[in-house]
Design a protein around this nucleic acid. Structure first.
Lengths: 239, 239
DNA sequence: CAGTTCATATAGCGTTGCTATAGGTGCTAG
DNA sequence: CTAGCACCTATAGCAACGCTATATGAACTG
C-alpha cells in the first residue's frame, strides 16, 4: 500500500500526489495521505516543494507535458484550422480523462492570480493560430483569437466535468468549438469561397503580415522599427 | 466590528458570510470568522444551515436573486438575440463586480456534481432563447444553444476574473459573445437577409414550432401525444 | 402548570497545513 | 583516514480548521 520503486523521495511524493489526485473522486487530498503513501514524513514534502501548492504545481507541470504531447502529436495536418479543431477536442478529452488533475490546472481560479499553465496553454494555442494567420485564414489577431477560444474551451470542459458521466454530451463541445473557429476564420478559409463577409481585406492582410513578421524574425528592420511597425499593424488588425 | 442590527441570528450569519466572502480577496473564509462576525457560536450555524456548504448555498441563492434581477430588468427589448447579448454582458459584469461570490457560484466545480445554480442559469438562458426560436431566429434547439452559450460565458468570466484588474480586456468577452450568438442564429436573424447558409428551412421551422409548443401549453394534443410529438421535433432539430 | 420543541451555548474531537529542531548520510578537503 | 560541510529526512507539536455531543434557556401547547 505504498509507493516504493526505490525512487528518491521527491519522485515518490510526485507519484503519490498524482495517484491520489487521480483517484480522489473530487474530494480533497491531504498532505498526510500523500506523505503516507510515499512512505515519507511531512518535512520532506516541505523541503522539496515549499508547500502543498508547490507540490501540486509540480504535478501539474508533469500533467502539462502530457497535455502538450497530446496537442503536438496531432499538429501537422497542413490545415491550421483543422489542427485547432483537434487541439480543442484533445483539450476536452484530457479534461474528461483526468478531471481532478484538470481541475487543479484550470479549475482552481482565484481573483487576479493567473496560473502559469493558463499562459502556457494560451501560448500553445496562439502558436498554432499563427500558422492560420500567416496563410490569411484568420479574421482576428492570433493573440485575441487564442484567448477567446481557450476561454470557451475551458468553459465547456468544466461544464462537462460537472455533469454526471452518462449525461455528458460531447455535442456541446463540438458545437461550441465550431462556433468559435468559424467566428475567427476568414470566409476564404471557411469554404475557399468568395469575399470576406464585410471584413475589409486590408485588415486580413495586416493580420497575416503581422503573424508572418513575428514568426520569421526578419532582420530587414531594426528592433525598434519592428516594434513600432508591429504596433501599427496590431492597431489596424484590432480596429 | 460585528453585525448586530438586532436581526435574528440566521440573517446575521447570512450577512456576515456574504460580507466576509466579498472582502476575502480570494483567500478562504472560515466558519469561525463568520460566527464571530455574526456574534454567534458554532452550533448555531450548523443548526440553521447543516454545514458550511449549506450556508454558502444560502448566500449564493441570495446572490442569484440579485443576478436574476439584473438579467430580467433588461429583458423586453423586442429583439430576443439582443436580449441574449445583454444577458451575456450582465453575467460578465456580475462576475467582475463580485468575483468571490461568482467563484462560489460558478467556479467551484467538482466532478459529477452540478450546482443547482448552474441549472437555474441555464434555464434562464433557455427561456430567453425560446423567444428567439419562436420567431425563427434560432439555428439550433434552445436547450443546446443555452448550454453552449452559458459554458462559453462562464469560461470567459472565469478567465477575466483570473486576470489582474488593469489587464482585463472586455474585448475578449464581446468577441466570444458575438461568436456564440452568431453561431446559433439563423441567417435571417443576422441581417434580415437571404437564405440560411446551408441549414434547411424545415429544421429551422421545426425548432421554431418546438419552442412555440413548449411555450404555449397548447391543449390541442393530449399530454402523451404532445410528449411524443416534441420528441420527434427534437430529433429533427438536432439531426 | 407540565411537556415539548426550537434555538443557542460550553467544551472538545479529529484533521488539516505547516514548522522548530535535531539527527543521519554522503561528499570533499586536508 | 578523518573533519567538516551541505544536503536530506525524522520527531514532535502548534494553531487553525470543520464539525458535534451534550446541556441550557426560551417559547409555545396541552
Amino acid at each position: 500500500m505504498s509507493i516504493d520503486g526505490q525512487l528518491p523521495p521527491k519522485a515518490r511524493l510526485l507519484r503519490a500526489a498524482a495517484e491520489l489526485l487521480a483517484n480522489s473522486g473530487g474530494s480533497a487530498v491531504s498532505t498526510r495521505q500523500i506523505t503516507q503513501l510515499a512512505g515519507v514524513t511531512a518535512p520532506t514534502l516541505y523541503h522539496h516543494f515549499g508547500d502543498k501548492e508547490g507540490l501540486f504545481d509540480a504535478v501539474v507541470a508533469a500533467g502539462f507535458d502530457e497535455y502538450v504531447a497530446g496537442e503536438r502529436d496531432f499538429a501537422p495536418s497542413g490545415q491550421p484550422l483543422e489542427d485547432i479543431r483537434r487541439m480543442w477536442d484533445n483539450h476536452v478529452q484530457f479534461g474528461l480523462k483526468q478531471p481532478e488533475l484538470y481541475l487543479v490546472m484550470f479549475g482552481n481560479i482565484r481573483p487576479e492570480s493567473r496560473p502559469a499553465i493558463v499562459a502556457d496553454a494560451e501560448a500553445l494555442m496562439e502558436e498554432m493560430l499563427n500558422k492560420a494567420a500567416v496563410s490569411g485564414q484568420l479574421n482576428v489577431p492570433p493573440k485575441e483569437a487564442a484567448r477567446s477560444i481557450l476561454a470557451a474551451n475551458v468553459g465547456v470542459t468544466l461544464m462537462l466535468i460537472a455533469e454526471k458521466v452518462p449525461e455528458r454530451n460531447l455535442e456541446l463541445s463540438a458545437m461550441t468549438r465550431d462556433a468559435m473557429i468559424f467566428a475567427v476564420s476568414t470566409e476564404q478559409a471557411r469554404n475557399n469561397g468568395s469575399d470576406d463577409s464585410g471584413k475589409s481585406s486590408v485588415v486580413v492582410a495586416a493580420i497575416a503580415l503581422n503573424a508572418a513578421l513575428q514568426a520569421s524574425h526578419s532582420d530587414q528592420l531594426s528592433s525598434s522599427e519592428l516594434k513600432l511597425f508591429l504596433e501599427w499593424l496590431h492597431r489596424i488588425s484590432t480596429s
